[in-house]
């Protein structure tokens, strides 16, 4: 993890304060926290509950309902593999098996070097050019097992970025 993603009660509260006035603020707040820290730190739950005058159980219930939110830090990159039908029709099942074997992890796991977290996704809207995967915020199409390996090597060997 890098510096800018470190969290503190103050930085969490700042994100909450920026959004809590909105109608239906909980999802926007959770997105803001995850965008900034990579996950929803457990310390955020009581702070959100207090700010929105909800119970902790309610906040926790919302976090666990949605597949997108995670409560543990991910690796440096999140790789999502599309498991849905249009990608299945062009080899997504094989790609999925290959990816797990290549990375040595299952879905919702992170490689031991903490570079890559693997997730499943159901459609990326790139269904005419599958199999599709998403790496952080960019989508790749027509991903063969070879293309997958090349991409992972690129991600895992890239020199450290200078963080802003």
């Amino acid at each position: 993890m890098n510096e800018s993603r470190e969290w503190s009660s103050q930085s969490i509260q700042a994100e909450i304060n920026a959004l809590k006035h909105k109608p239906g603020a909980l999802l926007p707040i959770l997105h803001a926290l995850q965008d900034r820290f990579g996950f929803i730190p457990s310390d955020a739950i009581p702070l959100i509950a207090e700010s929105l005058q909800q119970t902790r159980a309610e906040v926790h219930g919302v976090i666990s309902f949605y597949h997108h939110f995670r409560t543990a830090p991910p690796g440096r990159h999140v790789v999502q593999i599309c498991r849905a039908e249009a990608c299945q029709a062009v080899g997504a099942r094989q790609l999925e098996a290959h990816a797990k074997a290549h990375l040595g992890i299952d879905y919702h796991q992170t490689t031991s070097d903490r570079e890559i977290t693997l997730e499943a996704v159901y459609c990326l809207g790139n269904c005419a050019c599958g199999p599709s995967i998403r790496v952080d915020d960019s989508v790749r199409g027509r991903v063969t097992p070879e293309a997958f390996d090349a991409l992972m090597d690129e991600l895992q060997t890239r020199p450290l970025e200078v963080m802003g």
Partner: peptide
């Protein structure tokens, strides 16, 4: 929400 596999017209 365009969740259906095989759809991308909304996108």
């Amino acid at each position: 929400d365009e969740g259906d596999s095989g759809t991308f017209a909304d996108r």
